[in-house]
């Protein structure tokens, strides 16, 4: 079901409670009574069309509004992506770390295996941090510079220098698949780890890993299907309009 601006915000959460994390990123807090999506967005000064596209893309993999999303300003998209980064590092990763730590504590029969999991996730955490850091330091500023040049009549020379050293396709090529290790970790726990003593803890951990994976997938879809094509078009247009030969 597609979420529209006249649906009650409360029903959006009832439909799929994972949307809570999306709301959170837009700074929307609970307690909205029977207000519609549009009214709540207005209250929080959020672009309701953008919110709808993001939340629909999040809930429904098949609904992926590439075209619609590409119409929004780059800054709106990168701000959203930036907030997903914060969500991973400040919330999800610490939660998972704590659960793994609890498993190490509770499972002395296979402590070695649990320590391995801990090490694995720790490495993953570093990898994820590098990944998001690079996006924030290099990719997002680049996309904003490109958009600025695209909208200007006479772009600054610096943007051409920038474009000589970097392009969105470089990002696309070096954009490694950050979900793979998470997928492996899940499979190791589900299929190969000797039965842990505390299965409730183990289920909680899996729940969190699935949750993080889903969110990362959504994050990558937005980057690869929205941000990259949008910037590539702009790059082409800039080159066509402002360079000779």
């Amino acid at each position: 079901m597609i979420i529209t601006k006249n649906i009650k915000m409360a029903d959006v959460i009832h439909m799929n409670y994972f949307t809570l994390s999306v709301l959170n990123r837009f700074g929307i807090e609970l307690g909205f009574g029977d207000k519609s999506v549009q009214d709540v967005c207005k209250e929080y000064n959020v672009d309701s069309d953008f919110f709808l596209e993001i939340v629909n893309a999040f809930v429904n993999k098949d609904y992926f509004p590439k075209k619609n999303l590409q119409n929004f300003p780059v800054k709106l998209i990168t701000d959203y992506l930036q907030k997903t980064h914060d969500f991973y590092h400040k919330l999800k990763v610490p939660e998972i770390e704590q659960l793994i730590e609890d498993m190490v504590e509770s499972c002395y029969a296979q402590k070695d295996n649990m320590v391995l999991l801990k090490k694995f996730f720790n490495d993953y955490k570093k990898e994820l941090a590098n990944h998001t850091q690079r996006e924030e330091d290099v990719v997002f500023p680049y996309t904003i510079a490109i958009e600025k040049a695209f909208n200007s009549e006479k772009p600054d020379d610096s943007v051409f220098v920038l474009m000589e050293t970097y392009s969105i396709d470089i990002f696309k090529n070096e954009h490694d698949n950050i979900e793979e290790k998470l997928f492996d970790l899940k499979n190791i726990i589900i299929k190969y780890l000797p039965r842990p003593k505390d299965h409730k803890l183990c289920n909680k951990l899996l729940h969190q890993l699935f949750n993080l994976e889903q969110d990362l997938n959504d994050h990558s879809r937005i980057e690869e299907k929205v941000l990259v094509p949008k910037i590539r078009e702009m790059e082409k247009s800039i080159i066509k309009r402002f360079t000779k030969g």
Binding site: N113, L116, E180, K181, D184, I188
Partner: peptide
């Protein structure tokens, strides 16, 4: 196995005792 990455495969190998954890150095 449904495991794609080298660190993932390493954990599988250790759990199944194909190698010893001390052989890997760092993971």
């Amino acid at each position: 196995l449904g495991i794609k990455t080298v660190p993932g495969l390493t954990i599988y190998a250790i759990i199944n005792k194909l190698i010893d954890i001390n052989e890997t150095g760092k993971l």
